[in-house]
């Protein structure tokens, strides 16, 4: 449905998107994940035909975003990250206007307005002037606007920003329901969101893709390496040295464990292989009282930080 090949977008000398390639199948939900300034919005703007790419191509439903821009735009629903709205219009007036610009006929409008306002939690606000709505409600109007013409492809730039927790859940649920029939690309900083909503995650950093995988694959990839949480009793330096003697341990950090057990410390051990047995043996042989040993499960958050702070390495495409 969406095919992006070697996309580059430079603002003058500054390269914001640097050779990004990916594909999105019909009905899939793809999450863009990346720190501020990674190039998520820029990529989306190229996909929505708002900005021309410096080089590379992007095709949506078989149409090139540059050559057949109008055909692409017909099939798109877009929520820009700053949620631009006309503050002097009513919610209904605005949605009807956007619907018309997207090519809807006057006969279809009332039904869609009804459905879209209901699904975005705006039923009671339809007559309100947008300028008087709170930030979260404006966000919902922006989302409703993207959905109004029931587009094939939805591009949502941080769709849950500034919503309340209940609404975030509703919007996520809503986006999930859209999958199958619609193809969705969304960007976010919120990691659980990607795990909950997306079929696939694209981690972008400094304009480059650093990972492209399912959320669960990403999590399990990361645990090929191992992080152990160990609690033991004993003298600090000796304990750290003992742990470090184990082959495969990369780093050890120790902290005091409060006052409940005299001399207890918690170690955080990062290793490149499974080192549980060896660490346990080493500590016991060294005369330290082993209190607890467990594999710290790594959240997507850790992986995110790791992927975006280290030298970018492109990993397995599963496109």
């Amino acid at each position: 449905m969406v095919v992006v090949e070697d996309l580059v977008k430079a603002y003058g000398p500054h390269v914001a998107v640097d050779g990004v390639s990916f594909e999105v199948e019909k009905g899939e939900i793809l999450g863009f994940l990346g720190p501020n300034g990674a190039g998520k919005t820029t990529t989306m703007r190229v996909l929505t035909c708002f900005l021309p790419a410096t080089s590379g191509t992007a095709r949506i439903a078989g149409f090139d975003v540059y050559e057949d821009s109008r055909e692409v735009r017909r099939r798109l629903g877009y929520l820009p990250e700053n949620v631009p709205l006309y503050l002097d219009m009513s919610v209904d007036g605005y949605l009807a206007y956007m619907g018309r610009l997207k090519g809807m006929s006057g006969a279809d409008l009332p039904g869609r307005l009804e459905a879209v306002t209901a699904s975005c939690g705006l039923s009671e606000r339809r007559r309100d002037i947008i300028g008087r709505l709170s930030r979260g409600f404006r966000q919902r109007v922006g989302l409703a606007q993207a959905l109004i013409h029931d587009p094939d492809v939805l591009i949502l730039d941080e769709p849950t920003a500034s919503l309340d927790p209940v609404q975030i859940r509703e919007v996520r649920q809503h986006i999930k329901e859209l999958a199958g029939k619609h193809t969705v690309i969304l960007s976010t900083h919120i990691l659980p969101e990607v795990e909950l909503v997306c079929d696939r995650v694209l981690v972008i950093n400094k304009g480059k893709i650093v990972a492209n995988d399912t959320p669960s694959n990403l999590t399990s990839f990361a645990s090929a390496g191992q992080v152990l949480t160990v609690e033991a009793r004993g003298e600090h330096d000796g304990m750290v040295a003992a742990a470090k003697r184990v082959d495969g341990v990369r780093s050890v950090a120790a902290e005091k464990l409060g006052e409940t057990i005299e001399g207890a410390r918690r170690l955080r051990i990062e290793a490149v292989r499974d080192v549980r047995e060896d660490v346990a043996r080493e500590l016991v042989n060294g005369g330290f009282g082993l209190l607890r040993l467990e594999v710290a499960s790594r959240s997507l958050e850790d992986i995110f930080v790791e992927l975006t702070t280290e030298e970018p390495v492109v990993r397995g495409e599963t496109g």
């Binding site: 035909c49 708002f50 017909r74 798109l76 949620v83 631009p84 006309y86 610009l101 090519g103």
Partner: peptide
């Protein structure tokens, strides 16, 4: 904020 972004991404 730019409403032009929505206008120019409409058909």
């Amino acid at each position: 904020i730019g409403t032009i972004e929505l206008l120019l991404t409409s058909p």
